[in-house]
């Protein structure tokens, strides 16, 4: 009987120690700093064609494209405890930044801009969320010109893609595509290690990178499968000013895509070209602008190619 009592006390002791350690994890874990950064990678820096992870990314219709500006507004970064769903740390922002500014692309960071730090973050694995939101008056600006910032604020844009494209026989044209999207990204997977969220290290700086992946902008599919990079459909809606703006994309009907000559857009073998909307676009929005808005929404990743849940708020 005495042995049995000793055994029971032993079991109780083990349970107490185990339970106590489980209840005090966060307090003992310490705190760290999370460094927030933005990047557009090779696609933004080099345009198209460019080489990404050993694969050449080029337009199937012969266009070459360079970005001159990529303005984006980021804010509402939230690091959330997965179980309790409460915000452990946050950075409000918002910040309007031109990712193609010389200070970003010409520096020693290979196009990556560290734009904020969040200190005293519990050293835990946390879910990551952030927003891309319309520019508003008084917004903090980094490397954006006054003219660009004013236009983005006036039009409520959250993105502005600007650049040049050229193709033999078609000449050169410019594009300036602003979008008034308000997008919320949450529960991001981590592209570095394919886990969910970010493991914040104690007494160290942990990186959290919002990655704009411009290859999505020109893929002809919103679904999985064999997407091709195309620009003919964009070029075809440029007016006499040789400038493509976002409103003009709405005139390109996805069910009857037109090419540069105003005729139906065709592959080199004569087959008609179709964009695959993956069943996402409403019947009254089967146009290139609606498609482009989805593509831009898909282009935002976390820590490399990590994927987030995304929600369009506006």
């Amino acid at each position: 009987m005495r042995d049995l009592r000793r055994f029971v006390w032993f079991v109780c002791g083990v349970c107490f120690v185990w339970g106590a350690s489980a209840c005090t994890g966060e307090d003992f874990a310490g705190k760290g700093t999370v460094a927030l950064s933005l990047s557009g990678g090779e696609a933004l820096r080099e345009g198209f064609p460019h080489s990404e992870s050993g694969t050449m990314r080029s337009f199937v219709d012969g266009w070459k494209l360079k970005f001159t500006k990529l303005l984006i507004v980021v804010g509402d970064v939230a690091l959330v405890r997965p179980e309790k769903k409460d915000v452990a740390a946050s950075w409000k922002g918002p910040l309007l930044v031109d990712m193609m500014a010389e200070a970003v692309q010409g520096g020693g960071t290979q196009g990556t801009l560290e734009f904020a730090e969040i200190k005293d973050v519990p050293a835990l694995r946390l879910n990551v969320g952030f927003s891309v939101l319309p520019a508003t008056a008084g917004i903090e600006k980094k490397y954006a010109t006054e003219a660009d910032a004013s236009e983005m604020i006036a039009k409520g844009w959250s993105f502005l893609f600007e650049g040049t494209a050229n193709k033999e026989g078609a000449g050169e044209l410019k594009f300036r595509l602003g979008l008034p999207l308000h997008l919320r990204y949450s529960e991001c997977s981590n592209g570095k290690d394919s886990t969910l969220g970010l493991a914040v290290e104690s007494n160290k700086k942990t990186g959290a990178l919002i990655y704009v992946h411009p290859i999505h902008l020109f893929w002809d599919s919103l679904g999985e499968g064999k997407s091709k990079l195309r620009f003919d459909a964009f070029a075809a809606v440029a007016g006499d000013d040789k400038l493509v703006v976002s409103d003009e994309l709405a005139t390109q009907d996805l069910t009857k895509l037109k090419g540069l000559n105003g005729e139906r857009l065709k592959e080199t073998d004569g087959a008609l070209v179709y964009y695959d909307d993956n069943g996402l676009l409403p019947p009254d929005q089967l146009n290139l602008l609606a498609f482009f808005q989805f593509a831009v929404r898909d282009s935002i990743h976390f820590n490399g190619l990590g994927l987030c849940k995304s929600e369009r708020i506006r």
Binding site: Y185, G223, E224, F294, L307, K309, S310
Partner: peptide, 26 residues
């Protein structure tokens, strides 16, 4: 479903399990 969550993920396919025990994409 969440749009950006779909692309690039392995094909989930049909659940083929008793309803209530399975979550797909949350």
């Amino acid at each position: 479903p969440r749009v950006a969550w779909w692309r690039g993920l392995p094909r989930w396919g049909v659940a083929y399990a008793d309803p209530g025990h399975v979550t797909v994409d949350n």
